[in-house]
């Protein structure tokens, strides 16, 4: 009977989980570098596999920078709920006095801050390597910021659905990829239309709308999925 008087504020669950996850990833800093390294390596391999002419690279750069960023977020997605599932923390989340969707949103936010945000921030460097015309840099960063946030929300559903499966990696990719498609199309197009000299406000607006929609739908869906899969 200790509870009622010291009840934490509503966003407390979100902030507490966010703070814990950030602390955990800071103590395992080496894992933080993985998606960035993946991004860097694949972008390095690309000209070696295709052709280093600046004209060709510049024309495929918007799409390639986006696709590689998408793959880099997929790389760490499987582990989003895995640790918490294996040590029973997910069960504690469910029995917590806080709503599960806020807890989940906290985890997704931490995931985005540690993968999506760094990827978006380093993307101009890689854009230079791929000879993307400078007019596309800002569009690339902005579209990746919004796009990786949407992908984190969608990907969390995939991670939640497959958390109890031994070999969940492959099925996670299959579940998540079709849902990523609109983000990829709109995001890559934002960059190429910025390069072509058209505005990219429309694409950013679409991504923003997508983010709003994902924020409304996904936390509840992820919480529902976890209630089923985490107790297997």
């Amino acid at each position: 009977m200790t509870m009622p008087d010291a009840r934490p504020p509503v966003a407390g669950a979100w902030r507490a989980v966010l703070a814990r996850d950030l602390k955990l990833s800071w103590r395992q800093r080496s894992d933080l570098v993985n998606p960035l390294l993946f991004y860097l390596i694949t972008i390095t391999l690309l000209p070696l596999g295709v052709d280093p002419s600046r004209q060709l690279l510049g024309s495929i750069a918007p799409g390639m920078l986006w696709i590689m960023a998408l793959l880099a977020t997929l790389l760490s997605l499987d582990s989003l709920f895995r640790c918490d599932y294996e040590d029973g923390t997910l069960v504690q989340f469910q029995l917590s006095s806080e709503p599960l969707f806020l807890t989940v949103l906290g985890k997704i936010t931490a995931y985005w801050l540690t993968t999506g945000l760094p990827l978006a921030l380093v993307s101009p460097l890689l854009a230079v390597m791929l000879a993307l015309p400078p007019s596309g840099y800002l569009a690339l960063v902005l579209s990746l910021l919004l796009g990786t946030a949407i992908m984190a929300l969608i990907g969390a559903l995939g991670a939640a659905l497959t958390v109890c499966l031994r070999a969940g990696g492959l099925i996670l990719t299959l579940v998540v990829m079709p849902l990523y498609l609109p983000v990829l199309i709109i995001g890559a197009n934002a960059v190429s239309s910025a390069v072509a000299g058209f505005g990219y406000g429309r694409e950013l607006a679409l991504l923003g709308a997508g983010l709003a929609l994902a924020l409304m739908v996904m936390p509840a869906a992820v919480a529902g999925a976890l209630r089923v899969s985490a107790n297997q």
């Binding site: 395992q28 640790c83 294996e86 040590d87 069960v91």
Partner: peptide
């Protein structure tokens, strides 16, 4: 749920 304390056979303790 506010009145339950549950501890499964896994230990929800983070190594780091």
């Amino acid at each position: 749920t506010a009145e339950v304390f549950y501890l499964g056979h896994q230990v929800p303790v983070k190594p780091s």
